[in-house]
């Protein structure tokens, strides 16, 4: 039984593509057969984050238009033989594909894969409609900011209107030091406002930038808190109960001492 998951957010730049790359790679590490589909036609990025940009021959639009077979367009990951990418077309626009064609494509892919992850473009127009068309469930990525949460709320409404009711939340780019001093909304605040189930909280991590520079998802990397957070999200997707990470910033002796004197 395969599961089709759309990763969406409404607002751009909150980490949809990074999340797709890391969750997809994480699921592959757990021995699942995974395909990532970049549905952002015209602005493809997932290939770069995965470090597979040099291997693209055919793309999503080619498959949909019948210029090639699905297998010809799928790019095998560098590290994991059970992980594939279906890249988007860079020189076409969103209207090159319609929701009906996406549904058909996904039905075909279901036969071969355990997990189909759809990286959704920002916005709520045709690209979004294409991305959610064949999805069983959704992961909403948001950051603890007013604009991102507002857009996430709108997206949740649209997903429900499209009969997608299994919706989980990923709160991305958390800065625990800022949450602690009250200058950033906490995970609890965000969950309370959006009232959907939380599936993961990912701290803001320099390692994400570094891994994206290198074109290698950091999921599972030792010593990276964000990488650990993605591993946990993958386990929760499989239905396992995993305790939430302690994202507390480790305070130095001197800052502790200083805070004692402040009181």
């Amino acid at each position: 039984m395969s599961e089709v998951i759309v990763i969406t957010s409404g607002k751009g730049g909150v980490g949809k593509t990074t999340t797709t790359a890391n969750v997809g790679t994480g699921l592959a590490q757990l021995d699942k057969k995974v395909v990532l589909i970049d549905t952002d036609i015209g602005l493809r990025n997932l290939d770069v984050v995965m470090g597979l940009e040099n291997r693209i021959v055919y793309n999503l639009v080619d498959v949909v238009e019948g210029n090639c077979r699905i297998k010809q367009a799928l790019i095998k990951d560098k590290k994991y033989p059970n992980l594939f990418l279906l890249p988007s077309a860079q020189t076409r626009d969103k209207s090159s594909v319609n929701p009906e064609q996406m549904r058909k494509l996904i039905e075909d892919l279901r036969l071969d894969f355990d997990y189909i992850l759809l990286d959704c473009p920002a916005g709520i127009e045709q690209g979004f409609q294409n991305a959610i068309a064949g999805a069983d469930r959704a992961l909403i990525v948001t950051t603890p900011e007013v604009s991102a949460i507002r857009d996430a709320d709108r997206i949740i409404g649209l997903l429900e209107a499209n009969e997608i009711h299994k919706i989980d939340l990923i709160v991305n780019r958390l800065r625990m030091d800022m949450v602690k001093r009250g200058d950033m909304m906490s995970v609890k605040d965000v969950c309370e406002i959006l009232s959907i189930d939380l599936i993961g909280a990912v701290p803001d991590d320099e390692q994400i930038v570094i891994s994206t520079n290198q074109g290698e998802p950091l999921v599972g990397t030792d010593g990276s808190l964000a990488g650990k957070a993605y591993v946990n999200i993958c386990h929760r997707l499989l239905g396992e109960e995993v305790p939430y990470l302690d994202l507390e910033v480790k305070e130095s002796f001197f800052s502790k001492l200083a805070s004692v004197f402040k009181k």
Binding site: P144, E145, V146, I149, R150, M178, V179, R181, G182, D183, M184, M185, S186, D189, I193
Partner: peptide, 13 residues
Amino acid sequence: SSGSVAKDRLKLL
């Protein structure tokens, strides 16, 4: 704190 200002603004919004 600016965090709770954000939360209140969001709730209304």
